[in-house]
Simulated assay, not measured.
Amino acid sequence: MDRKPLRLAILEGERVLTAAGIPSARAEAEMLAAHLLGVERTKLMMFPLVDQSVVDSLERLVQQRATRVPLQHLTGAAALGRVTLAVGPGVFVPRPETEQLLEWGLNRLRGLRNPVVVDLCAGAGGLALALAHERPDAEVLAVDNDPTALSWARDNAERRRLAGDVPVHVLEGDVTDPGLLAERERGVDLLVCNPPYVPEGTPVPPEVGDHDPPAAVFAGRDGLRVLRHVVAHAARLLSPGGGIAVEHDDTHGGSVPALLAARSELTDAEAHNDLAGRPRFATARRDPAGDPTRSG
Rank of each mutant, 00 (worst) to 15 (best):
M1F: 12
R3M: 13
R3F: 14
L6I: 11
L8F: 05
A9W: 03
E14G: 09
R15V: 05
R15D: 13
G21V: 02
S24W: 02
M31T: 07
A33Y: 04
A33K: 08
A34Q: 05
G38W: 12
V39G: 09
F47A: 08
P48Q: 11
P48C: 10
P48D: 13
S53G: 10
V55S: 09
S57P: 01
E59S: 15
V62T: 14
T67G: 03
V69F: 02
L71A: 01
A86M: 11
P89D: 04
V93S: 05
V93P: 00
P96G: 12
P96I: 10
Q100S: 15
Q100D: 15
Q100P: 00
L101E: 10
L102F: 10
N107D: 15
N107L: 10
N114S: 14
V116S: 11
V118A: 12
C121F: 01
G123L: 00
G125L: 06
A138M: 08
L141T: 11
A142D: 03
V143C: 09
A149Q: 03
L150N: 04
S151I: 01
W152I: 09
E158S: 03
R161A: 04
L162M: 08
V168N: 08
V168Q: 07
V170F: 11
G173P: 04
D177H: 12
G179T: 03
E183T: 14
D189H: 15
D189P: 02
V192G: 05
C193T: 02
C193V: 02
P199R: 06
T202L: 00
P203V: 07
P203I: 03
V204L: 09
P205V: 09
E207D: 14
G209F: 01
P213Q: 03
P213N: 07
P214C: 07
V217N: 01
F218T: 00
R221V: 04
L224E: 06
L224V: 08
R228I: 01
H229I: 01
A232D: 15
A232H: 11
H233P: 05
R236L: 15
L238Q: 06
G242N: 11
A245T: 03
A245V: 05
D250M: 07
T251M: 06
G253H: 09
G254E: 15
S255N: 02
V256C: 03
A258M: 05
L260P: 09
L260W: 10
L260M: 07
D268N: 14
D268G: 04
A271K: 10
N273S: 14
D274L: 03
L275W: 13
R278C: 08
R280S: 04
R285A: 12
R285N: 05
G290F: 04
P292S: 13
S295I: 03
